[in-house]
Each structure stands twice: as C-alpha cells, then as structure tokens.
C-alpha cells in the first residue's frame, strides 16, 4: 500500500477514535445547506474543470492562440476558420479522422508547412501574443521556440551526442563543456540518460524504436523550446515504448507546452488536459474544421457536440 495512503489511514483512525461531537466536518451550515438543495448538481462535468477552462487571466496563460486560421494548398482549402487557445504547461491533443487536417494544423504552429509549395494562409497564429505569420518574422526563430517530434523516429545518422548537440551548434554554441551539459540535461529530461550515458558516441540509429523517439524528443529539448509539437509520436512504437513516451510527456508538462496529434483516441484521453476534435466539413471539399475543443474529461465523458460524441463512442460515419 502506498505510503501516503498509510499515513492517511492512520490519521483517519485517530480522528475517529475520539467521540467528541461535532466532528471532522463542520455541520454549522444549516442556512446555506437549505440553499444547496436547490443547487443543481451538474452530472459528469465537474464545475471545477469547467472553471479551469475559462480561467481568469491571472490563473492560466495562453501559450499560443490560433485566430480564425485558414490554410490553402493551391485551390484546395485544407483548414477553415480555426480558432483555439493553447494553454501553457498543458497537453493539448488534436484528434479526428484521417485527412481532417490535424497534422496540417500542427505543422502550421511552427511553420513547417512553409516547405510545401503553393501554400497560402489566412488568419493568425499568435505565439506569446506575436503573430508568427507576420511579415518579417524569422522562421528559424519560430522553429527554435516551437520544437517538433515526428511520427517515425528520425535520428540523424550521427552519434547520440551529435544528435542532441545538432540544435545548439546551429545556434552557434561551440563550447564543449556547455554542450556536454546540454546533452546530459536533455537526455535526462527525455528519460534516456541512464540508458545511453555510456554510449554517447555510438550511433543514434543503433537504439531501439522507443529510445530513438526519446532521443528525438531530447534533440528537440536541447534548443530549449517553449512549445513541443508531437505528430503521432507513438504510432510506430510498441505498447511499452508508447507508455514510456506518454509518461515522459507528463513529466515534461511542467516546463513545456505540448500539442499532440494522435489517431489513438485512448492515447489522447490518457495523456491530454485539453482535447480538440477536428473533422472535414463535408466529403466534397474535404476542408478541415474544428468541431469541439474542451477539457479532455469533458470531451470523453460528455461531449457537447453530436459529431464529437459519435467519434469518441466509435459510432462515427
């Protein structure tokens, strides 16, 4: 049994051993209790969680805000009028059926879509209040602040050390001692240090799939981004490695904002604090729209939208 629970049990017994009355809870609430009876107990949507979703400004910070964002590949509109706020130090999951534009939206957050020719956007994406699509914005700077982890582990064909040091070196860091420190810290944050500390100069490609993915996470962490985008980070991994990545995400939450795209609804339910559900608006034009965005507990127990409910209950189609 858990230590914490043991002590509580002890406490629980002590408090009950003396028969003094009144007791643990204060029953002196006669008047207000009458009012309480009329108060509707909202079932399944804890009031506390709804409050945290529309927080007062001093409580929660928005790390990024997507404002009325649309994206076109040539004539094809891939995303339409998407607006959502991404909470700082939380995990936000984007779910939805294939081809609904989840990855496109994710890649818009660090301008990876710029690599695609004929792309055009409308609307804004604010990172800490600054529009990353404003003219004159340095893409390199955006990508440094917003790191990315991909579906398949993609370590560079270099040593583990050089993989991690790649980013810092890009930004002009040359001092060996400092690089050593960054490599160790990043690997520790990615929960990989103990497994690789004796073979830092072996190739990163010699690691197992799960280790490679954590190496890629460590590589992204090495440039100290503010936000990390994960595009189905566990879809190529076995269940144990997947679990490790999920636990890792939880431990990274305190320092980073994480946005994850996943096909795996259960994974979104397990790891995320907020969930966004996207869908194509109709089968003809296949434009992705945001259907529902809310606290994960709500989206998976009491979604507000019929389409979301159909999707999370597996009755989609």
């Amino acid at each position: 049994m858990d230590m914490f629970l043991d002590t509580f049990l002890l406490d629980f017994q002590n408090r009950n051993s003396h028969h003094n009355f009144p007791s643990l809870i204060d029953y002196s609430v006669t008047e207000t209790a009458e009012e309480d009876k009329t108060k509707k107990v909202s079932f399944l949507v804890p009031a506390s969680q709804i409050d945290s979703f529309t927080p007062s400004p001093q409580d929660t910070k928005y790390k990024a805000s997507i404002l009325n964002f649309s994206l076109f590949y040539g004539k094809f509109q891939a995303l339409r009028n998407i607006s959502m706020d991404i909470m700082a130090n939380k995990i936000t999951a984007i779910i939805g059926p294939s081809g609904c534009g989840k990855s496109t939206l994710l890649r818009s957050l660090n301008r990876m879509n710029d690599l695609v020719p004929n792309i055009r956007i409308q609307g804004q994406i604010l990172l800490e209040g600054e529009n990353i699509y404003a003219p004159g914005v340095d893409i390199v700077g955006v990508r440094r602040r917003v790191g990315m982890v991909f579906q398949r582990p993609n370590p560079f064909p270099k040593s583990i050390y050089d993989n991690i040091a790649y980013g810092p070196r890009l930004y002009g860091m040359r001092r060996r001692a400092l690089l050593d420190e960054i490599v160790e810290r990043s690997l520790q944050q990615a929960a990989l240090w103990d497994e690789v500390k004796d073979k830092l100069h072996h190739s990163g490609m010699a690691l197992s799939g799960g280790q490679q993915q954590r190496l890629c996470i460590a590589r992204a962490l090495a440039v100290q981004p503010e936000m990390i985008l994960m595009d189905e980070p566990a879809s190529a991994l076995d269940p144990v490695a997947t679990l490790k990545i999920e636990e890792l995400m939880q431990s990274l939450k305190s320092e980073y904002t994480i946005v994850i795209v996943t096909h795996n609804m259960q994974q979104a339910a397990r790891v995320s604090d907020y969930t966004a559900f996207m869908m194509i608006d109709n089968p003809q034009n296949r434009t992705g729209v945001l259907v529902e965005y809310g606290p994960t507990a709500q989206v998976f127990t009491n979604p507000q939208n019929k389409q979301t409910e159909d999707y999370v209950t597996g009755r989609f189609g």
Partner: peptide, 9 residues
C-alpha cells in the same frame, strides 16, 4: 524535416 524543425537552413 527533423533538421528543418530545429531551425536549420
């Protein structure tokens, strides 16, 4: 993409 996402030209 892994390299470009780190901000490399």
């Amino acid at each position: 993409e892994g390299s470009l996402a780190l901000g490399a030209p």
